[in-house]
């Protein structure tokens, strides 16, 4: 009975309705650790990315370029663009320590069955680099941020 109750409670905690404009996803446990990286300390990185407005512009152009990409657009075709924009913004903002928390799924769950291959991942990185360059993020800061993302490869790329 206790077990059942705690399961019910846990489910209740996560089965919140999907935010407006987003499709529902299977229930999961909300935890900032799902972002897959520890946030930077201090506000230097956040400043170099132009704070939340800068990060939002980067994420917008990053997501837009991925959907329009001749190589990897196919992978994004069936993804929920509204949700993707929100959770990637949260993830970047959280990792850059720009004052957000991450409420999305962990990287492995979020990329299940997407069929991402290494070349796709590299393409994704290039699109992100382009978005960061457009926002005039210094290259060394871009790389410091990529250093946080690089270890996630095994959770994203399908073996």
């Amino acid at each position: 009975m206790m077990v059942l109750l705690s399961i019910l409670l846990a489910t209740a905690q996560v089965a919140a309705p999907a935010p407006q404009g987003e499709e529902a996803v299977a229930p999961y446990r909300v935890d900032p650790a799902n972002a897959g990286a520890k946030p930077f300390s201090g506000d230097r990185m956040a400043r170099q990315f132009g704070g939340q407005p800068g990060i939002r512009r980067i994420v917008d152009s990053f997501v837009t370029s991925n959907f329009a990409d001749p190589h990897i657009g196919e992978i994004f075709k069936n993804q929920d663009a509204v949700r993707l924009r929100r959770v990637i913004f949260e993830q970047f903002c959280y990792i850059l320590n720009a004052g957000c928390t991450y409420t999305g799924r962990d990287m492995r769950t979020a990329h299940t069955n997407m069929g991402v291959q290494q070349a796709d991942m590299n393409r994704l990185v290039e699109n992100l680099q382009r978005a960061m360059a457009t926002e005039r993020v210094p290259f060394a800061a871009q790389n410091r941020f990529l250093a946080k993302l690089a270890p996630m490869r095994s959770a994203v790329v399908q073996r």
Partner: peptide, 10 residues
Amino acid sequence: QQGGGAGKLL
């Protein structure tokens, strides 16, 4: 034209 194409990073 595509500024890189799929594959390895530059």
